[in-house]
């Protein structure tokens, strides 16, 4: 059987305030514990704030600065440059933002940091909406998904962040999720060894925001991959695409039907989503020269 062997530094601590069974908390565990103690983190308003615990407690043994919503990337760049000036260039600086803080309000700052190839690792915990404020749509929310701001289902499609960032030609972009812990840790390790702006987008299915059972985050993560909704891949220097785990041709319905945010879908809408996913998967394969 598939067997994990993961070496962890104990950076992320129990006693944090994430919802029970939270995918983001699990992702954070492996991000922090893989990057290790010689790091500083940047957390904008997101679920990761409460996850850290209220002052004066912290669930993270590395220093964290809680910055403004739109400036995670630039905040991280400021820290990194300050360490450089202090002669401590070996300190890793991580931005840990949500999809709202990345796809929407933080995109401008991220673009600038990517353009400068600032030496930071940027992690986007993509749960496809503003879950911390009670499930509103973001530009990462997929088409037809229910949110409180799209009660009839979202009419526009999900933004392709990876392609936007790939256009900046940053050294490393990867997608991953906690359904594939080995993949996730591999990519963080790889990113850690590189320099420049490294971006990792993690799909973190939200129990409450998406509406599925509380023990199912890994299953949902895997279904997203197996149906082709969220393939796990890497882009190096904006050019070299590598697919690590992709669609297994599983019908999209297997993924959609398990989520409350999709329960209103008509057959046509499901077909429409299927078509979009298929196109996306084909496009990715083409980019990867498959």
């Amino acid at each position: 059987m598939k067997h994990y062997e993961i070496a962890e530094e104990r950076v992320f601590l129990p006693g944090h305030a994430a919802c029970p069974g939270c995918a983001m908390a699990l992702a954070l565990r492996y991000i922090l514990n893989t990057v290790g103690l010689n790091a500083v983190g940047v957390i904008p308003p997101s679920c990761m704030g409460p996850m850290m615990g209220a002052n004066p407690y912290s669930s993270m043994r590395i220093p964290i600065i809680h910055n403004s919503f739109e400036s995670s990337a630039s905040t991280a760049a400021g820290i990194k440059r300050a360490f450089k000036a202090r002669g401590k260039d070996d300190v890793h600086v991580l931005a840990l933002a949500g999809d709202g803080g990345t796809y929407d309000i933080g995109l401008q700052a991220l673009s600038s940091v990517a353009e400068h190839n600032e030496d930071i690792m940027y992690f986007c915990m993509d749960n496809e909406g503003y879950m911390n404020t009670g499930t509103q749509k973001s530009s990462s929310t997929p088409r037809h998904a229910y949110t409180t701001s799209t009660p009839g289902g979202k009419e526009s499609r999900k933004k392709n962040l990876v392609e936007i960032m790939a256009a900046h030609r940053v050294p490393y972009i990867a997608t991953t999720n906690i359904g594939y812990l080995d993949d996730l840790v591999y990519k963080i390790k790889k990113a850690k060894k590189m320099q420049g702006t490294r971006i990792v987008v993690l799909l973190t299915p939200c129990i409450d925001g998406w509406g599925f059972p509380g023990n199912d985050v890994a299953t949902m993560s895997r279904l997203a991959v197996q149906t082709g909704v969220f393939p796990l891949y890497e882009v190096e220097d904006g050019e070299k695409y590598t697919i690590n785990h992709g669609s297994q041709g599983m019908p999209i319905e297997n993924y959609l039907k398990r989520q409350r945010r999709y329960r209103h879908l008509s057959k046509d809408q499901i077909e429409e989503i299927q078509k979009e996913v298929d196109q996306g998967w084909q496009r990715l394969q083409k980019l990867a020269n498959l």
Partner: peptide, 13 residues
């Protein structure tokens, strides 16, 4: 007041 001083593993979830 604005800097952390304690670890969350002291808490009981």
């Amino acid at each position: 007041t604005a800097w952390t001083t304690l670890r969350s593993d002291a808490l009981n979830t």
